[in-house]
């Protein structure tokens, strides 16, 4: 709600605050690197099929396991497919699968955390115990067992990732809400008779969002980790999809003779994961109070 017509004035401090934060960021080179990497990968994911010199499924058995050259800058794999094209197109797979999984986890985790903390009492107790049980099984193991039963597919991987990370998101949101709930601005809202939904979504949620953003970036990094690992184990996206984990898994057979088969997809995973990690650290610094110094 804008109470005076001077909405311009309102924006000024926001901009100056943002620029102050950006200035502070310059002292943290890793954050800038992180954001650049993530933006680069996003661009690649969107534009990949257009940049890629070959179709990622194009086989050319005559050109098997060719080292990097002018025509194939990342070389070719055991079927003579262009690795550069496959890595480019594969970025879309990773980002879409990990991104959708993360979004699911964030959305449901947020709802669980919000309501559990706000309701409190027995409801909260039971919900959180269920979350604890899910957390007490290593995520990769649980993902493997579930995918083993559901059958490996892109959609199933997304659902599994989304499901597995709900408890962690819910925990974070819950602890933030529990703290916010006792703040006096929430009590002031109760005193003027605001509805629970208003308090939850207008008073509390806006203050949870920064935490949620940081949490999302961290979950995203974990999701990439999980999705790639599942792909590697053959439980994720299935061939001939250019999934990076899958490519690395296949490369195991060939990399003794042709290291580039391993390096480029593995390097892509490493770069993306590190980039997301740095970005997540940076978000924490920018968005959370005291975040400049923390983990």
């Amino acid at each position: 709600m804008v109470l005076t017509n001077s909405s311009k004035k309102q924006n000024e401090p926001k901009i100056s605050r943002l620029s102050a934060k950006l200035k502070r960021l310059r002292r943290y080179p890793t954050t800038l690197i992180g954001f650049s990497i993530v933006i680069l990968f996003l661009l690649v994911a969107v534009l990949g099929p257009w940049i890629a010199p070959y179709k990622y499924t194009d086989q050319n058995l005559a050109m098997r396991l060719q080292p990097p050259s002018e025509s194939h800058i990342f070389g070719t794999d055991q079927f003579g497919r262009d690795i550069f094209s496959r890595v480019l197109v594969g970025s879309r797979d990773v980002l879409v699968v990990a991104g959708s999984g993360t979004s699911l986890a964030i959305f449901f985790g947020m709802l669980v955390g919000l309501f559990s903390a706000y309701r409190g009492g027995l409801f909260d107790e039971i919900v959180m115990r269920i979350m604890d049980v899910i957390l007490s099984i290593p995520p990769l193991l649980l993902a493997m067992v579930i995918l083993f039963s559901l059958g490996p597919s892109r959609l199933n991987v997304i659902i599994v990732v989304g499901f597995l990370y709900i408890p962690m998101v819910a925990r974070v949101v819950r602890s933030v809400v529990l703290e916010l709930k006792t703040r006096q601005f929430v009590e002031a809202a109760r005193l003027r008779g605001e509805s629970s939904l208003y308090i939850l979504f207008n008073e509390i949620l806006p203050n949870v969002l920064p935490h949620l953003a940081v949490e999302a970036s961290m979950r995203f990094s974990y999701s990439i980790f999980l999705v790639a690992s599942l792909g590697f184990l053959g439980l994720g996206v299935q061939p001939p999809s250019p999934d990076w984990g899958l490519m690395v898994g296949d490369a195991r057979t060939w990399f003794h003779q042709a290291r580039w088969v391993l390096f480029f997809p593995a390097g892509a995973i490493a770069l993306l994961v590190v980039g997301v990690g740095f970005m997540s650290d940076g978000l924490r610094r920018m968005l959370l109070p005291g975040g400049v110094s923390d983990v």
Partner: peptide, 15 residues
């Protein structure tokens, strides 16, 4: 703690 950090002061008074 008594004002919502995300709401402009006027909103707190207007509600």
């Amino acid at each position: 703690a008594s004002l919502n950090p995300q709401h402009p002061a006027g909103v707190s008074v207007a509600r």
